[in-house]
C-alpha cells in the first residue's frame, strides 16, 4: 500500500458516499445517470468475485464489501425507491454499445484465459468507460448540480491517483500491469474535459454548465 493508492481508494469511497447521500438527502436522483451506476455495480461484482476465495487483508475485503453494497444501494435508490425522480429522458446512452465490445476485448486481450481473470479484465475495461453515460447525460442537460460535480471530481481523481500509484509501484516494487494502466489512462483522460470545467468553474463557486 502507498499514499497514492490509499488516497485514491478514499477518494473513490468519498465519491460513492457523496452520491449516495445526495440521492438519500434530496430524495431525488435528478441529473444522475442510472446507467453509469448499473455499470459500476457490474464492475464491482465482476471484479470482486474473489472476495471469499482470495483474502488479501481486512482493508481489502472491507472496501470490496462497502463498494459493492453502496453501489447496489445507489442503483436500488435510483430504480426503485426514488424511481419517480429518475430522468430517463436524458439518460439514454446505449450501454450495450459499451458492455459488448468490452466483453469481446476481455476475451481477446487478457493476462490469463481463465473465467476469474477474464471477468477481472472485463471489469477493468468496463470501469474505464462506465462514466460515459453520466458525462453524456450532463452534455445533454447542459449542466450538473454542484454536488454531482463534486462526485465526478472525486471519482475521476481516484483513478488519476491510481496512475501515480502504478508509477510508484513500478519503481519501488517492480509491479506493472499493462491492462490496468492502459485502462486507467483511458478512464482518466475521459475526465479531462470535466476536470477543466470543474477547476475553472465549480472551484470559483459557479455552477457547472457546459458551453451550449
Amino acid at each position: 500500500m502507498n499514499i497514492f493508492r490509499l488516497v485514491g481508494d478514499l477518494s473513490h469511497l468519498l465519491a460513492i458516499f457523496v452520491l449516495l447521500l445526495k440521492i438519500w438527502k434530496s430524495r431525488s436522483c435528478a441529473g444522475v445517470s442510472g446507467k453509469s451506476q448499473i455499470l459500476f455495480a457490474l464492475v464491482f461484482i465482476t471484479r470482486y468475485l474473489d472476495l471469499f476465495t482470495n483474502f488479501i487483508s481486512v482493508y481489502n475485503s472491507l472496501m470490496k464489501v462497502i463498494f459493492i453494497a453502496s453501489t447496489v444501494a445507489t442503483v436500488y435508490l435510483m430504480y426503485i425507491k426514488f424511481k419517480a425522480t429518475y430522468d430517463s429522458n436524458h439518460d439514454t446512452f446505449r450501454i450495450e454499445f459499451l458492455v459488448v465490445p468490452v466483453g469481446g476485448l476481455a476475451f481477446l486481450v487478457n493476462h490469463d484465459f481463465t473465467p476469474l481473470e477474464i471477468l477481472w479484465t472485463f471489469s477493468i475495461y468496463l470501469e474505464s468507460v462506465a462514466i460515459l453515460p453520466q458525462l453524456f447525460m450532463i452534455s445533454k442537460t447542459g449542466e450538473a448540480e454542484t454536488i454531482t460535480s463534486h462526485y465526478l471530481f472525486a471519482l475521476g481523481s481516484y483513478r488519476a491517483l491510481y496512475l501515480l500509484n502504478w508509477i510508484y509501484r513500478y519503481y519501488f516494487e517492480g509491479y506493472f500491469d499493462l491492462i490496468a494502466v492502459v485502462a486507467g489512462c483511458v478512464q482518466t483522460i475521459l475526465y479531462c474535459d470535466f476536470f477543466y470545467l470543474y477547476i475553472t468553474k465549480v472551484m470559483w463557486g459557479k455552477k457547472l454548465s457546459l458551453p451550449a
Binding site: 488479501i56 481489502n60 490469463d112 477481472w120 499493462l178
Partner: peptide
C-alpha cells in the same frame, strides 16, 4: 509483468 501477489488492488 504480472504481480505475484495476485489482485491486491481494489
Amino acid at each position: 509483468d504480472k504481480d505475484t501477489k495476485g489482485k491486491d488492488e481494489l
